[in-house]
């Protein structure tokens, strides 16, 4: 257990040293500036989208960037010859990625409160961001492990977003009819989007929310077990 804590501390330290946390804070500040120019209602409407973009797209991007950087630096290889398990390494990286997603959700929420006095159920939001964050960390790993370098990872991410994220955004703009939403839930992006929207607006469709939570948890487990875990070591050693 204490190795895991040291690993997480190391990940968080590197989020700062490699300027990933500062960059993510800057994007959050851009959101804050946007809030300043919006009315309360507009802000309320756009908030789920902002949090969703951070959780579902930024987190994949940042995880991919750090994965390929570490691979280049050879540091994953040297971690593999330490008395720690691969499960611990992956857990630490996933938690770091979740913390990043939570950090931007927190900054956004605080800004909304101070600018527009908007509040919502923070515990539920935190829970949903964590669940969606873990699933998208898994997706980030899958795309990273299946790509040669960061550029080709970006290509894969584009493909992924085209398939899964864009339809969800179209839906939130009302371009896709609401009666097809259950179909859209297959997209991890949309499940995440649905959960985050529910938490922010306070409108819970219980069936959909439970389905979304279960689906994202199940998806994380399957991806980690069958895609990430078996490939990770080989990928690091090959260099």
């Amino acid at each position: 257990m204490s190795s895991l804590i040291k690993l997480i501390a190391g990940e968080l330290n590197r989020l700062v040293k490699y300027k990933i946390l500062p960059v993510s804070l800057v994007t959050a500040i851009i959101w804050i500036v946007i809030f300043l120019f919006l009315s309360e209602n507009e802000a309320r409407e756009i908030t789920p989208l902002l949090i969703f973009v951070d959780v579902a797209a930024m987190s994949i991007l940042l995880l991919g960037a750090s994965h390929h950087l570490e691979k280049q630096e050879g540091t994953i290889r040297t971690m593999m010859v330490m008395p720690i398990s691969m499960g611990q390494i992956l857990t630490a990286k996933t938690i770091a990625s979740m913390i990043l997603a939570i950090e931007s959700a927190v900054v956004t929420s605080v800004a909304l409160f101070f600018i527009h006095g908007i509040t919502f159920n923070y515990i539920v939001l935190l829970l949903f961001v964590a669940i969606a964050g873990a699933a998208h960390a898994a997706i980030g790993f899958v795309l990273s492990l299946r790509s040669r370098d960061f550029t080709s990872m970006l290509g894969l991410l584009m493909g992924y977003m085209f398939l899964f994220t864009i339809p969800s955004i179209l839906f939130s703009f009302g371009i896709i009819d609401a009666k097809y939403e259950w179909l859209l839930m297959v997209s991890p992006s949309h499940s995440a989007s649905h959960l985050i929207t529910s938490a922010v607006t306070g409108n819970f469709e219980i069936g959909m929310v439970i389905a979304g939570c279960l689906y994202l948890t199940f998806l994380s487990a399957v991806l980690f077990k069958f895609e990430v875990y078996p490939r990770f070591k080989d990928n690091a050693v090959r260099g």
């Binding site: 330290n13 590197r14 040293k17 490699y18 570490e70 630096e73 050879g74 540091t75 290889r77 040297t78 010859v81 330490m82 008395p83 720690i84 398990s85 260099g239």
Partner: peptide
């Protein structure tokens, strides 16, 4: 198991460090 790595030291052919640390 991973306690094997308590006992061995491995020097790699290529650098293996966090460059920004």
């Amino acid at each position: 198991d991973s306690s094997f790595y308590e006992e061995i030291g491995v020097g790699f052919e290529v650098p293996v460090h966090f460059s920004k640390l």
